[in-house]
Design a protein around this nucleic acid. Sequence first.
DNA 1: CGATTTTCATATGTCTTACATTTAATGTTT
DNA 2: AAACATTAAATGTAAGACATATGAAAATCG
Lengths: 243, 243
Amino acid sequence: MKIDPDSTVDLSAQIAGAIRDAIISGSLIVDERLPSEAELAEQFDVSRPTVREALKRLAAQSLIRTQRGATGGAFVNRLSFEAAQPQQITTSTLLLSMNAVSFETACEARYALERACAPLSAARRTPDHLATMRAEIHRQAQPGLTDEAFCASDVAFHRALVDGAGNPVLSYQLAGAVEAMQPLMNMITFTARDRARIIALHEGIADAIEAQDGGATATALTALEQETQTLAQSVFAARAARR
Amino acid sequence: MKIDPDSTVDLSAQIAGAIRDAIISGSLIVDERLPSEAELAEQFDVSRPTVREALKRLAAQSLIRTQRGATGGAFVNRLSFEAAQPQQITTSTLLLSMNAVSFETACEARYALERACAPLSAARRTPDHLATMRAEIHRQAQPGLTDEAFCASDVAFHRALVDGAGNPVLSYQLAGAVEAMQPLMNMITFTARDRARIIALHEGIADAIEAQDGGATATALTALEQETQTLAQSVFAARAARR
DNA sequence: CGATTTTCATATGTCTTACATTTAATGTTT
DNA sequence: AAACATTAAATGTAAGACATATGAAAATCG
């Protein structure tokens, strides 16, 4: 491993990159222990704080974990879908909020991706997925539900739909698209009539999934997207008119 | 901001989390300068190396950038789609390689997502997107092309297709799914006949995109998925039989 | 002899101090 | 007024020390 002390980037960034490359290329395998911080410092010819900064960078990406104590050290992490999802959600959320992505664009992307899951989910969903969807619909119909709780239940409903496809790659990718919409949805106040319409559409989706009809599921999702878009449009228009 | 010194997690992780929360919640806005490392150390009542480890964690996620010199410091980054994509690709690639995701599952997810882009891309693609697709097809037909170069061109072709949808959120999400497949594709040796079939399917996709026919694009994508799946299956079967 | 306790070595976590380097603003000189 | 030198503030890096967690070996006791 070679480090260029005259590079324009930090030593810790270079070291992190070298170790990251070793993990990606397979030179370092899952659960393998890295040399101790002192050994790494000697190998790269830097001080221990610099090595530690590099390791923290990798830890922030869940590429390694550290253990204290006698047999401790830094170990290559098995990057799990569960561990990667929160990261993915945080990044997606920030991307939307920092780049002035319109509600329309985000909504379009989300429903396009969800429709991609529709035929697979219709074919493979378990009774468990269906039960979750029904339960969330029931929750959404409860009176006195706050807008935040309504949106959270909406997210849970859609995630059950996506998970029904039984494809962890899809579930991972969709988690970002679905969850990142929540802050945008939370900007909307849902009237009782709005909620009733959305719940009816959710029931249509659940029915199509229960009937294992992928085409009908996609159609129902398109209807829900349409409803969401027009609802958002009217809310934003009213808000703009008030000023 | 409060830090619990008796927590089970590192001080630097807690500090990074506190700053991250401030960015997500909007308390810290884009391009705002954080306090200097010395000031942060005093605020959180920790030493400067600990603060630095926290900042490196955030830098690894592209949440902040640092500048040296008199007016330097740590600044909140505008998280751009361009900056987030490499991260997304790295994570997706590692997820596939570390979790024994089958070629079949990854391929299914990728083409399902791509089909989601088909109608949008057919409707909105610019001449530029179409030209890129045609150029990549031409490159793929060149004799003497290595398998790696063929796969790289394949990725470029599909990314042009996805970008044609004109939705940055979709392009971002799809980048991970498409690029992460490349290492898996590179495990396949393409015969001349295989390449010819794939190129023909690519031409069918490009034709459908040119005709702005979303349905035909989706159908052509399904055909390509089928071809890819059977090809991979035969390659892996032959490899298993050799042992 | 076996089980328990103690000791110990090793590793990460944290603090302190110091110095190097970069960079912009300020001051000085010609 | 322009060019140059100085300075101050910030990050980058190094070195050493101590605290703490933890597993393993050694010592002790029943």
